[in-house]
């Protein structure tokens, strides 16, 4: 009776979901809509005036060659990182669920890089690449050796290597959960039917771990695609802006060069890419549920 009244509904909703709604609206929804509006203005970041300029910012974004180079570079970086993150993570998960001694110790150890933020990790690795690896190279060659970070391809390689190092332990935990969710009896049945361990893993365990694969691959895609902290501390976009990833380009465009409108338009293009990735994940995930 009383529970169907509008006032009851409103007060209950506000009591329980009010704080969450306000914070969510204030930090995500309103800035998102306001950001859309900003892309149609030429705001300079300081003045109150936000002159309406139509599609100029989008034209500028489409004509911004460094942006598209950064985006292309991010795609290349993401492909390699995602591939190696998942290969390493899967192998580690396979090994730490195989019953070897100290597997919990290894699991805990491989996870350590995830505890520390990209900024600190980047500086740690910068030291490793610039000093330790250089010292090793110099002792081998006998002369002076350049740091990997000082060349274009080297910097890219370093970013991929550190990303794999950073995320493999995390993805490993998801694969471990996947391995543990496959009942041992299924694999035993396959072995009785004549499969060897490798065949049983390939044909029984892996297909049943589909959800883990979808999860890990998409998680690593989004993480890598939006890389910023590591990019900032490890390479800072150097040498010669050749390792600037998309997120860093957007940051520089907006906050360093003060082209807020263009920067925001470029950020929205990133959002479209993320949305496509997200929708694809949901679609692939759903498809798997039906088939299973």
């Amino acid at each position: 009776m009383e529970r169907n009244k509008m006032s009851y509904k409103v007060s209950q909703f506000l009591m329980f979901a009010g704080p969450a709604s306000i914070l969510f609206l204030g930090t995500v929804i309103i800035p998102f809509i306001y950001g859309l509006y900003l892309t149609f203005t030429s705001w300079d970041g300081v003045s109150k005036a936000k002159p309406f300029v139509g599609l100029t910012n989008y034209m500028a974004a489409f004509a911004d060659a460094p942006y598209w180079q950064a985006l292309g570079r991010t795609v290349v970086y993401s492909i390699f990182s995602v591939l190696f993150i998942n290969i390493v993570a899967f192998l580690l998960a396979y090994m730490v669920t195989s019953g070897v001694k100290g597997q919990n110790f290894f699991r805990a150890g491989f996870f350590i890089p995830n505890l520390i933020g990209g900024i600190v990790l980047g500086y740690v690795w910068k030291f490793v690449f610039n000093r330790a690896f250089v010292a090793i190279a110099e002792s081998i060659s006998g002369g002076t050796a350049p740091s990997l970070l000082s060349t274009t391809n080297g910097a890219m390689f370093c970013l991929i290597l550190v990303s794999v190092w950073q995320y493999a332990g995390y993805m490993m935990l998801i694969y471990v959960a996947g391995f543990m969710s496959v009942p041992e009896s299924l694999k035993e049945a396959a072995m009785i039917d004549g499969c060897n361990t490798f065949q049983a893993t390939m044909n029984v365990t892996i297909p049943l771990m589909r959800a883990s694969f979808v999860q890990c691959i998409f998680l690593s895609i989004t993480r890598c695609f939006m890389v910023y902290d590591l990019n900032l501390s490890l390479t800072k976009g150097e040498p010669f802006n050749s390792s600037v990833m998309a997120a860093m380009h957007v940051y520089n465009q907006a906050f360093t060069y003060k082209n807020y409108g263009t920067g925001q338009a470029e950020a929205l293009i990133l959002f479209v890419v993320c949305a496509i990735i997200g929708v694809t994940q949901v679609y692939i995930g759903k498809k798997g549920e039906v088939a299973a």
Partner: peptide
Amino acid sequence: SMVIPFQVLMVPLVSVYGG
């Protein structure tokens, strides 16, 4: 909203909460 990357929100956030 989970697919929205932070980069899309940072300029408006600074603009609204800073400006």
